[in-house]
Design a protein around this nucleic acid. Structure first.
Length: 392
DNA sequence: GTAGGGTTAG
């Protein structure tokens, strides 16, 4: 019962059963506790999790390996590395899973050096790392400062002839890409035997990050030809490639292909990419056209991208003041929006747009723009923003 | 019976 609910969309139910059982004097055992803990983790109920941990100790199961692993994973999810470490330290027996969990815990809480340290001491303790261990560890080797660590993980794979499956391959190639070695990333990608969609998607995004839009497009075509069907996320990636490399025609082609060839409805991200592609190219009217047709309406990210394009190209479109107002109203606490809006508004032929920006600020009742201490008082803010940010 | 890899904005 507890187990089936822990895996269901309503994990809270398994906690209820657990409590009811306990009230009737039936305590969970080392088999059922991991599922109770899993329910706390899935329901993101940190207080329940701590409570259950307390009961585990009370029931004398603190030393059980499976219970310990479950607790460690739960504390990782809650970003409570200190508690996770405590659980690990108190485990009487630790296998490769426990060590991998601890590494993943340090990676999650952004402590790459600790993760590496755990990896080293794992080897000192004669525990053999497997694929999962390395996949957990690799994200901490992407920084330049950990250059040697990445190489030693790679050589560990080669020396121990571990199978380069798509998960491990993906982790390895993105490590190389992060540290700037796009050629090594491509080489790793080529050596993965069974490439799944995730694998291709990561490779595409790496190429995009390195400004290799044309290569990414060639790779996307290769992916389609190899029988892998792109999903919504893959299209987001290829559209951002087009955006980074200024490929307007290709962008349109993929935007139409996702619906036409694959029946995928464009989402907020896809519309946003198109606004970005067109706006960067100075095609302000077309970009505005996209904003008008998107069924879910633009989010602040898209508005900022569009308004910044207007400012960059010094172009104005009928009705753009409405979008500036929308941006400020949807994120009244972001100071940068006021500056962006004011600068873009100054391009318009009349100053009424500037007044509009100031008006919406007054309407919200905001006197001081967050993050900009020099903008004391609403009256002077537009003038000051213009002076400071346009240098005029 | 526990553990792993995917996107975007500036």
């Amino acid at each position: 019962m507890i187990r089936s609910y822990a895996n269901s969309p309503d994990p809270a139910e398994s906690l209820k059963i657990f409590r009811r059982m306990r009230q009737n004097g039936i305590h969970a055992d080392s088999y059922s506790y991991p599922f109770v803990i899993m329910a706390c983790r899935k329901g993101l109920r940190v207080w329940d999790g701590r409570g259950v941990h307390g009961l585990v100790v009370k029931d004398g199961l603190g030393g059980d390996k499976y219970v310990g692993d479950a607790l460690l994973r739960m504390y990782t999810e809650f970003d409570e590395i200190v508690m996770g470490r405590k659980v690990f330290d108190e485990m009487p027996e630790r296998d490769v899973t426990s060590w991998s969990l601890l590494i993943a815990a340090y990676v999650t809480c952004d402590c790459p050096n600790d993760a590496l340290e755990v990896f080293r001491s794992m080897i000192r303790n004669n525990i053999k790392p497997n694929n999962v261990t390395l996949v957990s560890l690799l994200p901490s080797c992407g920084h330049v400062s950990n250059r040697m660590a990445g190489l030693s993980v790679h050589s560990h794979i080669v020396v121990n002839s571990l199978c380069l499956d798509s998960a491990l391959g993906t982790a390895l190639l993105s490590m190389y890409s992060q540290r700037g070695s796009i050629e090594s990333a491509v080489r790793v990608f080529r050596s993965i035997e069974q490439k799944n969609l995730q694998c291709w998607t990561v490779m595409l995004s790496c190429l995009a990050h390195h400004g290799r839009g044309e290569d990414a497009i060639a790779l996307f075509t290769e992916m389609e030809n190899s029988g892998v069907t792109p999903d919504s996320l893959a299209f987001t990636v290829i559209l951002t490639c087009c955006s980074h490399s200024g490929l307007v025609d290709k962008g349109w082609k993929y935007f139409q292909s996702m619906k036409g060839d694959y029946g995928l409805e464009p989402s907020m991200e896809h519309y946003g990419c198109m606004v970005d592609i067109l706006g960067r190219a100075g095609l302000i009217d077309e970009a505005y056209g996209i904003i008008k047709i998107m069924p879910m309406g633009p989010n602040p990210v898209i508005l900022r991208s569009f308004i910044a394009s207007c400012r960059y190209h010094g172009l104005v479109v009928e009705g753009d003041d409405e979008l500036r107002r929308l941006l400020i109203e949807s994120e009244p606490n972001v100071g940068a929006n006021y500056v962006l809006a004011a600068n873009a508004a100054s391009l318009s032929s009349s100053w009424s747009h500037v007044a509009d920006t100031r008006l919406s600020m007054k309407k919200i009742g905001l006197k001081k723009v967050p993050g900009y201490s020099w903008m004391e008082g609403s009256d002077g803010f537009v003038q000051e923003a213009l002076t400071v940010f346009t240098g005029g």
